[in-house]
Design a protein around this nucleic acid. Structure first.
Length: 573
DNA sequence: GCCGTTTTCGGCCCGACTGTTTTCAGTCG
């Protein structure tokens, strides 16, 4: 069982946590965390790089020692240094760090002085009143720990960006009603367009005095105030979403926006660059010997480092700073670049609109063409179309195309990719369609070899144009299928199969990293709504955002093509 | 443990808020 990057990153994070509790050199701890981040963001599998005997020390934050540890992990699946650490520090202490208010110093104290090793031990120590007697544990801290244990806020929870957006908008509107507020911006991972967010970071740009913090605390969804200050406050909303508000003045707004948009790794890189130039960069501006050089807008902040403005979706320290420095930032795709949508459903299968309703909604959304791709009849999908119903639908589409203006419907189908890689519809039928999408809706848990073989075989079918939502994951509920992505992408490129980026908020599949890998492998992408209702075409924007995170440029997206070019492209494959 | 347009040694991003202190450590983002 080969070791994946995520597991290696987790090992490094665990090393960092335990070293920190053990009181080891804080910079060594940071080195492990940096390495974990590098590994997580890496576009390629370390196991493959090790197999190819590539020089791992060329990766940022990976030196001789950590390169050796990566090789050890890949080769043996174990890390002796971690096992040795486990003999000194109980590994279960890691779970205590997840509790808000407990950091490495306090966890170390609980462990060394009270023998607390895990959550249960902590509960017992609390009940016995032993925690309150420790130095540094006052009544407020003890109460906070008790509450965290009770409400299980210790468990990290992420929210779909799409769901958080509703709260973000409501809060923005509410805060903009406070005196002196010029603008309220949502920063953080939300602004970077991540598919899920852990919290919301709001930035209020305020002129003069303002009651914006008080108004924030009075928002009617607020159930708990964690902290409140002059420039900053943190609350929890009823649904468990944490929201941070920062108050900044207009001349600081750009610096604050850079700072609070992150990512952390991106910000650290910027501040290090600033430092190397004798500058100091923080959320208030960029300074040389106390003199403010920039800060009112983001572009001025980047300019002090001789960098162009970098789109938020790229700010993950995945090469965007190097690209900016050398003038190689991508021209990222925008919603207006999309001319059509190649994936939607009607009442004929599991959708909710008629053919005409879907067509008119797509036209209203600014699209020029729309492929109708109802499900084929097979396992797992309700109301799939059989051959007969499909042929009937094709006739209706022909007739509708004669009546509709400003939108063209394409005849298509979302066909099941069966367990063995065959498609769930005979070739004679598929060859009459303009858009054939293959999709996995069953047998999600096949082993990597079998799953990869299944998709490779499906892509060898000459009638297949696209593979829909390739990983088949559902965010926060179903893990991605186990796939050899390298082989999968190579086969997609060879067979000229387009990979879909499905814009449904729960899917967003391809994800950002795989979208970028697909481009690198020479594979084209389609950004589709997978609409099931007339409202769903608005979701294309979510798909575009994810594509931007994957560095996708419009000329690599087939549904930016004019209709006739698209038809030629699909016939040619 | 990493890293180097000044460095192979001596640095390592930066500030707010809280609680427990009596001048600041710990935590968080």
């Amino acid at each position: 069982m080969p070791m994946h990057n995520e597991e290696i990153a987790r090992v490094f994070d665990e090393m960092a946590d335990l070293l920190e509790i053990a009181g080891d050199n804080p910079f060594k701890v940071r080195a492990y965390r940096n390495a974990a981040r590098t590994v997580r963001n890496l576009g390629r599998e370390l196991a493959e790089m090790v197999a190819a005997e590539e020089d791992l020390t060329r990766l940022p934050g990976i030196g001789r020692e950590l390169a050796a540890k990566i090789r050890e992990l890949v080769a043996t699946g174990r890390l002796r240094a971690l096992e040795k650490l486990h003999r000194q520090v109980p590994p279960t202490l890691e779970e205590l760090l997840r509790i808000p208010g407990l950091g490495p110093r306090r966890v170390a104290l609980l462990w060394r002085r009270l023998g607390v090793r895990d959550l249960r031990g902590l509960e017992r120590a609390l009940a016995a009143g032993r925690v309150a007697r420790l130095r540094g544990f006052g009544p407020r801290t003890v109460e906070q720990i008790r509450q965290s244990l009770r409400s299980r806020t210790a468990v990290e929870r992420r929210f779909l960006r799409f769901d958080a957006a509703r709260h973000a908008t409501a809060l923005q509107r509410w805060l903009e009603g406070a005196t002196g507020v010029k603008e309220v911006v949502v920063a953080g991972s939300f602004r970077r367009g991540r598919e899920t967010v852990g919290d919301l970071d709001l930035l209020a740009v305020v002129e003069g005095k303002s009651e914006v913090i008080a108004r924030f605390l009075a928002f009617d969804e607020v159930t708990r105030v964690v902290s409140r200050g002059i420039t900053r406050a943190t609350v929890f909303l009823r649904n468990g979403l944490q929201v941070d508000l920062r108050v900044v003045s207009p001349e600081q707004a750009g610096a604050a926006l850079v700072y609070f948009t992150g990512s952390r790794a991106h910000g650290i890189r910027l501040r290090r660059m600033a430092q190397a130039r004798g500058l100091k960069m923080n959320e208030y501006g960029v300074f040389r010997e106390g003199v403010n050089l920039a800060g009112a807008d983001e572009a001025s902040v980047y300019a002090t480092l001789d960098l162009p403005w970098i789109p938020p979706e790229l700010r993950e320290d995945r090469g965007e700073i190097e690209a900016a420095r050398t003038g190689r930032l991508p021209r990222l795709i925008e919603p207006a670049d999309l001319r059509g949508d190649l994936h939607c459903h009607t009442r004929a299968s599991d959708g909710h609109g008629s053919l005409r309703e879907m067509a008119e909604a797509a036209r209203a959304a600014g699209l020029e063409y729309l492929a109708i791709t109802d499900h084929s009849v097979r396992i797992g999908v309700v109301h799939g179309l059989d051959e007969e119903r499909l042929v009937a639908q094709m006739e209706v589409i022909d007739r509708l195309n004669g009546e509709l203006e400003g939108i063209v419907l394409l005849k298509g189908m979302e066909v099941e990719i069966l367990e063995d890689g065959r498609l769930g519809m005979p070739d004679e039928v598929l060859e009459r369609l303009e858009v054939v999408i293959g999709a996995v809706h069953s047998h999600f848990r096949l082993g990597r070899r079998q799953q990869t073989r299944r998709l490779l075989r499906a892509m060898e079918n000459p009638h297949l144009h696209l593979v829909a939502h390739p990983s088949a994951r559902l965010l926060e509920s179903r893990p991605p299928i186990d796939l050899d992505w390298r082989a999968f992408l190579r086969a997609a490129a060879e067979n000229r199969v387009v990979l879909e980026l499905d814009a449904q908020p729960r899917r967003l599949d391809l994800d950002d990293i795989h979208a970028r890998q697909a481009l690198d492998a020479g594979v084209e992408i389609a950004i589709d709504s997978d609409a099931h209702t007339v409202q769903d075409f608005a979701l294309l924007e979510e798909g575009v955002r994810q594509a931007r995170r994957g560095w996708v440029e419009p000329d690599r997206v087939v549904n930016t093509l004019p209709l006739e070019s698209l038809r030629r492209r699909l016939r040619g494959s």
